[in-house]
Amino acid sequence: MKRAFPILAVLTALFLAYALYEALIVAPTDALQGDVYRIIYYHVPSAWTAFLLFFINFIASVQYLADAKPSTQRAAKWIVIAIGIVGAVAPFIPQVRQQLPAGLYPSSVATTVLAIPVFYLLIGKFFPGQNLDVLAVTTAEVGVVFCTIVLVTGPIWARPVWGIWWAPGDIRLTSTLVLWLIYVSYLVLRRFSDSAQTQKLAAVLAVFGALDVPLVYFSIWFFRTQHPQPVIGGGGSMDPRMLHVLLISWLAFLCFAFLVCWSRFRLEKLRREVEEAYALESLAGAEDGARQAGATSLPLNRSPR
């Protein structure tokens, strides 16, 4: 595993360079926006990566909370499987199909919903116990970095194209900003909380954040329909060559995110191991000290100074 890391790092660097070459040289220039549009090859892949990481964080947090008791663990598993089945079937029912917004295919909705049980079961299999929490920290931190890239590159593009840095009423901008704020507060909580139950509190906050995002989305959706804003049209089609470059770019970003997550995951595991070793050592020291002093037999007593 350790030997694979440098190899993967070199491959990712090459892949990112290739994606940059494709984005700057190979991809055709946009007819309306000119070369400014090329920033989407960094903007959009970062956004997708950030959302994926936040999604993994949410799943890991839910599973961490559910795993506290065997009964909730089993219940959560069945609920998730039920969500997957209902979500895979429901979009194809004609009545539900009519409710879907234009341009959204039932198959794409079904695949998205199916991702929930698939991720839930896979993450539960590969990250048992405390690893779930380590995964949650890792994905939240890396996700915030990618989300920051999105929020910085967005206005850089918007200024020449829309004429404004920021469209306050826009649905995607505001939802992303709120998501970023929630995850920053998640990291702040982790930083400021030093009790042994930080993991649990952080997982609870992640669940609250995930409940919040759809509400933000709907409120802004209504807000915008009342007050039209200069925003990019939703239904525009993309040149297949551009889409090709975009997907290559996304793959390169995913490799990069995976690499960063991997090293952060290992770092966090090591940090916890060190912490545990220190705790054990001080515990053993206290025991010895207590025995020497002939004091109480309580193992947690402080060693005499």
């Binding site: 709120v178 909380s193 919040d212």
Partner: peptide, 22 residues
Amino acid sequence: MSLRTRSRELMLPLLLFPVSIP
């Protein structure tokens, strides 16, 4: 939740405001 954190009083708005936005 913020009872368990350092600088408790500072923590509450930091947690509450992002979730309260909608």
